[in-house]
Write a protein that binds this DNA or RNA. Structure first.
Length: 765
DNA sequence: CGCTTGCGGAGGAAG
DNA sequence: TCCGCAAGCG
C-alpha cells in the first residue's frame, strides 16, 4: 500500500488525494478521461496519431495506483521499445511520489527475460542463458549449416533464420512445423538442429524468449496462477504491432478463459500498423475484442499535434483502405497551411528544393531540429545528405549501426562472457582468434572435433589440450597447440584479474588484457572503435548506477536487449533524416516526405504482398501525421536507382489527397500551377530547371568552397595539407558534417585516403 | 592471415 | 551506383 502510506504522511490526506486526483485527471478530454478511469475490465483504446496515447496509458496507471484500485505489483505494462518503456516509467514517476519498483514495465522481451531468469530451472534453461541478437543468431545458423555440411546456396542462412523465427512467432516448435513440401521439411530439419544447439549451449534468441516464457506459463500451473493473481492490470502499448505469439502470451497471462481474469488495457491504432513484415498481426485487435468480450472500443480522435489541413489530408488518404476499425482525427485548431506538393524533375533537383525550403524555414527562425526529412527507403538519404552538406546545413541521420551492434563492442562483450561463462562456445568462437593469435580454421576444426567427441564445450576441449602436458602429438605439427594454450592462459589470467572488481573496472581490464585496445590503437581507422570501447566502460558505469542487478550477467543481457543509441549524438541543432518507419511516434513542426513515386512509395515489392498496398498507405498516413504545422510532399520525375536513371509516375498517394488541401509548387516558380499536367515534355526534361540557390553539382570540384569552410574553418577543396603519417597532400572531397566530417585527401606519396577530421591531424600548408 | 578483387543484389527493423 | 560478402592471392 505504498500510495496510502505516502498520503498518510500528510495531514488531511483526503484533501491531498483529491488535489492529486484533480491534477491527474484535469486537462483530459472526455474520451481520454473515459479511458483513464475505465473500470477493471478489459478495454481496447483506438488511439489516433497525436491523440495523447502515452498520456492516457501513464495517467491510467497513476490513477489506478492513486485510487487504490491497484498496487504497483499488480501492474504489468508492456511496450515494444526500451525507449517507450523508459518514457512510461519517467512519466509515472513524475505524476506520483511512489516507488515504481514493484511494477513490471518493459518490453515484451525484457519482461520475458525477467521471468525466465527468475524461473530458469522451470523453464529448462541454465541460469546464465545468453541472449542472441539477430546477428548472433545468424552466426549460429551459419555454424550449424557448416557443421552439417549443408550447402549455403540451397539453404540461405537468412531464409533459415526467417523460417525459424516465423515458426517460433507462431508458437511452433520444430516438431510441430507443417512440412508439406520437401523444402519446408528441410527447413524444419534445420530448425530442429538449431534447437538442439541452442539447448546444448544455453542460448536463447529473441523469439525464444517469448516462446519459452509462453511455454513456461502454459505448462506450469502454479506459476501461471501466481502471475495471474499478481498482475490484474495488464497494459499494452502499440497493440497493433503485437505478433501472434505476443498476443497468446498476453492472453495466457491475463487468463482470458479463467474466471478471475486480468483486465487488459490495450492501446493501439490499426491505421498505424506498419510492421506486418516483421510479424505484427493487426487482427489481434479484433481477436482481443472477441476473446475479452470488449463491448465498446474507446476512440481517441482529437489530435493535439497537427493543423486541420494536414489531418484532413491524412484522413482522406487512409479512408482508401478497407477493413479499418474506423476513426477520423480532428483538431480544435485551425486549418493551417495547405499541404505543399513539389514536382521535381530529377532526384537531385528534388533535394535542391528541399534544401531551399529548409533555408527559408531557418531564415524564418525555425530550429533545424524541428524539421524532418522522411523517406521510404534508406538509400534515398544519400542524395539528401549530399545536398544538405553542400548547403552547410547540419543534419542527423537516424538508423544504421547501433552501439551494441558494433564489432568492437561485440568482441569486448564476448570476452566478458568468457570470463563469467567460459563454456560459451559462441563467445569463444568469436574471440579465440581476435585479436589474431594464430589460431586458424585448422585448429578450430580439431578443437570442435575434440569437443564433439567428448560431448563438451570448446573451452573444455581447449583446457584438455593444455593439460596433456609435455610434447604430445597435439603439439607436433605446428604451433597451434601453443596458441590455444596462450588463449586459455589469457582467459584464465583475465578471470583472476577481474575477480572482485566492479563492472566498469572489469570492462576496462578486459579491453586492455584482451589486446582489443592495443589492436585498435594500431589500426589506422581504429580511433572510433577505440572511443567506443571507452564508451563501453561508461555504459557499464551507468548500468551499475541505474540497475538493481549490477552483475556481469545482467549487463550482458542488457547489452543484448538494448541496442543502444544509433550513434553518439552530436547535440547541435540539426535537420532530422530518417525512414518513415523510424519516424513513427515522433513529431516535427515541418515534415518533408520525399520520393513519392510509384515503385518507391508505395514500394514495388509491396505489390506482391497480401495487403501490401494498404500497408504502404498506412505508412504514408504515419508519415503525414508526423507534421505539426507544415507538410511537404515531393516526387521526382526521374531518379537514379540501382545505378540507372528511372522515370517514375507520381505516387497514387499524392493523387488520393483532394486538390483543395494541396498547394502545388513548381521548380521555376512558387506560383500555384496545380491545373497544369504533371509531366513535362521530353524537351523540358532535356533542360532540367535548376533552382538558383542550391548548387546540385555532384562532383567535388565544383562544390561550394564556402560550404566546406563553414564546416571546417581553414579547409577547402584543393587545399594543400600535411598529415603526420602520410605527408603532404591535397583535399579533393569531403562528406558528413561536424564531428563526423571526413575529407578525402590525395597524398603525394601515400595514395588517396578518407580521413576523419576529428581524428586525423591535418595541417593546412 | 589479411588484404584485394569480383560479383551479386538492392525494403522497412524493435528486441 | 554502391555496398557487402566470398573466393583468391601475397
Amino acid at each position: 500500500m505504498i500510495f496510502l502510506f505516502h498520503a498518510g504522511c500528510c495531514a488531511g490526506n483526503s484533501n491531498i488525494a483529491s488535489i492529486h486526483m484533480t491534477s491527474l485527471l484535469s486537462g483530459l478530454n472526455p474520451e481520454q478521461l473515459e479511458a483513464v478511469t475505465w473500470p477493471h475490465h478489459s478495454a481496447l483504446v483506438l488511439a489516433g496519431a497525436g491523440s495523447g496515447k502515452t498520456r492516457v496509458l501513464t495517467t491510467r496507471i497513476a490513477h489506478l495506483l492513486q485510487t487504490g484500485q491497484a498496487h504497483p505489483q499488480n501492474i504489468l505494462a508492456v511496450t515494444f521499445t526500451n525507449k517507450a518503456a523508459r518514457e512510461m516509467i519517467t512519466r509515472i514517476a513524475a505524476m506520483l511520489p511512489i516507488n515504481i519498483r514493484g511494477m513490471w514495465i518493459g518490453t515484451f522481451h525484457g519482461l520475458c527475460n525477467r521471468m525466465l531468469r527468475m524461473h530458469a530451472e522451470d523453464a529448462g534453461l541454465p541460469q546464465a542463458f545468453q541472449i542472441l541478437d539477430m546477428a548472433d543468431q545468424l552466426a549460429v545458423i551459419r555454424r550449424m549449416l557448416k557443421e552439417r555440411s549443408l550447402d549455403e546456396k540451397s539453404f540461405p542462412p537468412r531464409q533459415v533464420q526467417w523460417f525459424i523465427n516465423s515458426a517460433k512467432e507462431e508458437g511452433l516448435r520444430a516438431s510441430r512445423v507443417e512440412t508439406q513440401d520437401s523444402y519446408r521439411r528441410k527447413l524444419a530439419e534445420c530448425y530442429q538442429i538449431y534447437e538442439g544447439i541452442c539447448t546444448r549451449e544455453g542460448i536463447v534468441d529473441f523469439a525464444e524468449l517469448l516462446l519459452r516464457s509462453y511455454e513456461l506459463l502454459s505448462r506450469n500451473e502454479l506459476l501461471r496462477d501466481h502471475y495471474r493473481a499478481r498482475f490484474n492490470h495488464i497494459l499494452v502499448d502499440e497493440f497493433q504491432d503485437t505478433n501472434r505469439l505476443q498476443y497468446k502470451w498476453l492472453k495466457l497471462l491475463a487468463g482470458a478463459d479463467s474466471p478471475q481474469r486480468a483486465a487488459i488495457f490495450a492501446v493501439g491504432d490499426d491505421d498505424q500498423s506498419i510492421y506486418a513484415f516483421r510479424g505484427a498481426h493487426v487482427g489481434n485487435m479484433k481477436d482481443l475484442e472477441r476473446d475479452f468480450a470488449i463491448s465498446k472500443v474507446i476512440k481517441l480522435e482529437q489530435n493535439y499535434r497537427s493543423h486541420g489541413n494536414i489531418l484532413d489530408a491524412a484522413n482522406i488518404l487512409i479512408s482508401h483502405n478497407n477493413g479499418r476499425l474506423g476513426k477520423n482525427l480532428w483538431t480544435a485548431e485551425g486549418h493551417g497551411e495547405p499541404v505543399r506538393v513539389y514536382h521535381a524533375i530529377t532526384d537531385i533537383e528534388e533535394a535542391a528544393f528541399i534544401v531551399d525550403e529548409i533555408k527559408a524555414l531557418q531564415a524564418d527562425g525555425l530550429a533545424l531540429s524541428n524539421i524532418a526529412l522522411l523517406y521510404r527507403s534508406n538509400a534515398q538519404s544519400r542524395i539528401l545528405e549530399h545536398s544538405l552538406f553542400n548547403a552547410s546545413i547540419a543534419y542527423r541521420v537516424y538508423g544504421g549501426m547501433r552501439f551494441f551492434d558494433r564489432q568492437e563492442i561485440k568482441y569486448a562483450l564476448a570476452y566478458l562472457r568468457m570470463i563469467a561463462f567460459p563454456d560459451d562456445d559462441h563467445a569463444l568462437l568469436r574471440i579465440i582468434n581476435f585479436p589474431a593469435r594464430g589460431i586458424g580454421a585448422r585448429t578450430l576444426e580439431q578443437l570442435q572435433e575434440e569437443a564433439g567427441a567428448a560431448g563438451s564445450s570448446l573451452w573444455q576441449a581447449a583446457l584438455k589440450r593444455c593439460d596433456g602436458a609435455g610434447d604430445t602429438a597435439a603439439r607436433r605439427a605446428n604451433a597451434s597447440g601453443k596458441s590455444v594454450a596462450g588463449f586459455v592462459h589469457l582467459i584464465q589470467t583475465m578471470q583472476q584479474a577481474c575477480a572482485g572488481l566492479s563492472l566498469p573496472e572489469i570492462v576496462h581490464h578486459v579491453g586492455e588484457m584482451s589486446g582489443l585496445m592495443a589492436h585498435y590503437q594500431a589500426e589506422r581507422e581504429g580511433a572510433e572503435r577505440l572511443e567506443n570501447l571507452k564508451e563501453l566502460i561508461n555504459a557499464a558505469t551507468s548500468f551499475v548506477h541505474e540497475s538493481e542487478d549490477d552483475s556481469l550477467l545482467a549487463f550482458l543481457s542488457h547489452a543484448s536487449l538494448e541496442g543502444g543509441e544509433h550513434q553518439a549524438g552530436s547535440y547541435q541543432d540539426a535537420v532530422q533524416l530518417m525512414t518513415v518507419h523510424a519516424a513513427k511516434g515522433l513529431e516535427f513542426h515541418s515534415v518533408f516526405i520525399s520520393g513519392l513515386e510509384e515503385g518507391l512509395f508505395p514500394h514495388e515489392n509491396s505489390r506482391h504482398e497480401a495487403n501490401g498496398l494498404e500497408e504502404e498507405r498506412r505508412l504514408m498516413y504515419v508519415a503525414m501525421t508526423r507534421a505539426q504545422r507544415r507538410l511537404y510532399l515531393s516526387h521526382a520525375q526521374s531518379r537514379m536507382l540501382h545505378g540507372q536513371t528511372r522515370v517514375n509516375v507520381p505516387s497514387r498517394f499524392v493523387e488520393e489527397i483532394p486538390g483543395d488541401l494541396l498547394k502545388r509548387l513548381r521548380p521555376d516558380s512558387r506560383a500555384d500551377i496545380g491545373s497544369q499536367p504533371f509531366f513535362m515534355s521530353p524537351a523540358d526534361d532535356a533542360r532540367p530547371v535548376r533552382r538558383a540557390a542550391g548548387s546540385t553539382a555532384s562532383n567535388a570540384s565544383s562544390r561550394s568552397v564556402a560550404a566546406m569552410a563553414a564546416h571546417a574553418p581553414g579547409l577547402r577543396i584543393g587545399q594543400q595539407v600535411s598529415h603526420t603519417k602520410f605527408g603532404p597532400g591535397t583535399i579533393i572531397d569531403y562528406e558528413g558534417s561536424g564531428a563526423d566530417m571526413r575529407v578525402q585527401v590525395c597524398f603525394s606519396h601515400a595514395g588517396t585516403k578518407w580521413l576523419s577530421l576529428a581524428y586525423a591531424k591535418l595541417t593546412p600548408l
